[in-house]
C-alpha cells in the first residue's frame, strides 16, 4: 500500500519532469529569455540529478509542502488550495453517493424481488443508460433544463450572494452549525444538480450489484430455512437477505469512490463548482505541476484509504471476517 504510493509518486515525478515545457518555462512565462530560464532552473534545483530532485521532493512532501501553484491560483501554496477546495468535493461526493445508495439499494432489491417485471426492466435499462451517457452531457442537460430554463436551481458555484460564516468550509455544515439556515439551504441547492449528475455513475453499479446479490441470496438454503420456520418476511428481508446481500454492495461503493473523483473533474467543470475536480482540470490546462502532483497523489491516497474503510466496514457487517 505504501509501496504503491511511493512507486506512483516516483512515476509521477519522472513523468512531470519529462513533460514538454517543464515547470521552469511554465513559471518563466511567455516573455522568457535563456538567462532568466537558467536562473529559475537553478533556484528550483532543476539542474540536480532527477533522483536528488525526487528525494528533495519527498522530504518536502512529508511536511505537507508541495510547492507553489503556478496555474490554478498563481502564487498560493498548492496545499493551501487543496485544503480550501477539499470540503467542496467531499460535500459533493458524499451527497452523490447518498443519492446513489438511497436510490440504488431499494430499487435493486425491488427489481430482484420482482425479477422480469416492469420495474426490473425499467431500472435495468436506466442503469445501463447511466453507464452509456457521458457524464458531462448529463450535466449539460440537467443544467439546461433545471437551471437555465426552469430556474429551479442555481447555474453554478457553491453559494450565492449570501451572508455566511465560515467554520469548517463545508458550506452546508457551516450553515447548520451557525444556525444560518438560509445559507445552508442555498449551499444545498447549489449542490443538488452536480450531485445528481455525479450520482448517475455509482447508481448504475450500486443498483446492478444489489440486484445480482439479492438474487443470489434469495436462492440460498438459509433463506428457504428461514421461510420454512415461519419467520415474517420483514425479518427475513432485513436479517437474512439484505444483510448478506450488502457485502458486495459495500465493495462496489468503495470502488466507486474513485470513479466519483474522476466524474467530479467533468461535473465540476460544467457547473463551475470550485472543488478539486475543477482544480484538476485547470491544473492540466494551466500546466500547474505542483498542483497536479499533489492532486494526483491525493486521488490515489483517497482510493487506498477508502478501500481500508471498506475492509473495516466489512468486519462490521460480516461476523465471519472478524473471527478470521
Amino acid at each position: 500500500m505504501v509501496g504503491v504510493m511511493l512507486l506512483l509518486s516516483l512515476l509521477l515525478f519522472v513523468w512531470l519532469r519529462s513533460l514538454p515545457g517543464g515547470p521552469a518555462s511554465a513559471i518563466c512565462g511567455d516573455r522568457c529569455n535563456p538567462a532568466k530560464l537558467a536562473q529559475i532552473k537553478k533556484t528550483l534545483g532543476l539542474d540536480d540529478p532527477v533522483i536528488v530532485q525526487y528525494l528533495n521532493f519527498l522530504k518536502r512532501a512529508v511536511t505537507g509542502d508541495f510547492g507553489v501553484s503556478t496555474g490554478v491560483q498563481p502564487g498560493r501554496s498548492s496545499m493551501e488550495i487543496f485544503v480550501e477546495r477539499l470540503p467542496a468535493t467531499i460535500e459533493l461526493g458524499v451527497l452523490a453517493m447518498i443519492i446513489a445508495v438511497a436510490a440504488g439499494i431499494p430499487l435493486g432489491y425491488l427489481a430482484a424481488r420482482r425479477r422480469g417485471g416492469i420495474l426490473d426492466g425499467l431500472t435495468l435499462t436506466s442503469s445501463l443508460l447511466g453507464v452509456a451517457i457521458p457524464v458531462f452531457f448529463t450535466a449539460f442537460v440537467l443544467k439546461y433544463f433545471f437551471a437555465v430554463d426552469w430556474h429551479l436551481f442555481p447555474i453554478s458555484g457553491r453559494q450565492g450572494d449570501i451572508e455566511a460564516t465560515r467554520v469548517t468550509n463545508f458550506f452546508v455544515l457551516d450553515g447548520l452549525l451557525t444556525r444560518e439556515w438560509d445559507a445552508a439551504w442555498d449551499a444545498l441547492r447549489h449542490l443538488i444538480l452536480p450531485a445528481v449528475t455525479l450520482a448517475t455513475i455509482p447508481f448504475s453499479f450500486v443498483f446492478r450489484i444489489t440486484r445480482a446479490a439479492v438474487l443470489d441470496v434469495l436462492d440460498e438454503d438459509y433463506v428457504r430455512t428461514a421461510e420454512a420456520k415461519g419467520l415474517s418476511s420483514k425479518v427475513i428481508t432485513r436479517r437474512h437477505v439484505l444483510r448478506n446481500a450488502m457485502l458486495p454492495v459495500v465493495t462496489i461503493i468503495g470502488l466507486q469512490m474513485g470513479a466519483l473523483l474522476g466524474g467530479a473533474i467533468l461535473t465540476e467543470t460544467v457547473f463551475g463548482f470550485p472543488g478539486l475536480g475543477d482544480a484538476l482540470a485547470r491544473a492540466f490546462t494551466g500546466r500547474d505541476y505542483s498542483m497536479l502532483q499533489l492532486l494526483i497523489l491525493m486521488a490515489a491516497a483517497t482510493y487506498v484509504v477508502v478501500n481500508l474503510l471498506v475492509d473495516i466496514t466489512y468486519a462490521y457487517i460480516d461476523p465471519r471476517v472478524r473471527t478470521r
Binding site: 509501496g3 504503491v4 514538454p20 470513479a259 492540466f284 500546466r287 494526483i296 482510493y303
Partner: peptide
C-alpha cells in the same frame, strides 16, 4: 505492482494525465 499503480487512479484521471503528456 505497475498494474496496481495504474489501477489506483480513476480511469478518466489517468487518461487525462497521459493525454496531457503530448505537446
Amino acid at each position: 505492482r505497475v498494474v496496481d499503480v495504474l489501477l489506483s487512479l480513476p480511469s478518466i484521471l489517468l487518461a487525462i494525465t497521459i493525454a496531457s503528456l503530448a505537446s
